[in-house]
């Protein structure tokens, strides 16, 4: 599963870890994140992310 990096602040979404603050379980691929999921660091929208 691919990691995705936030184009605004540099946060990396790692599917192996998920996003505990956003209630995203470990093992969730980036593509499966809901459309309104946002960067836990800076709040950037999903479309600001690109593959690492």
């Amino acid at each position: 599963m691919k990691k995705y990096v936030c184009g605004v602040c540099g946060y990396v979404y790692d599917p192996a870890e998920g996003d505990s603050e956003g209630n995203v379980a470990a093992g969730t691929p980036f593509e499966k994140l809901s459309a309104d999921w946002s960067c836990p660091v800076c709040g950037a929208a999903k479309d600001e992310f690109s593959p690492e």
Partner: peptide
């Protein structure tokens, strides 16, 4: 009003 990244989170 949140203004995240202007210029810190």
């Amino acid at each position: 009003m949140e203004t995240r990244m202007i210029h810190w989170p």
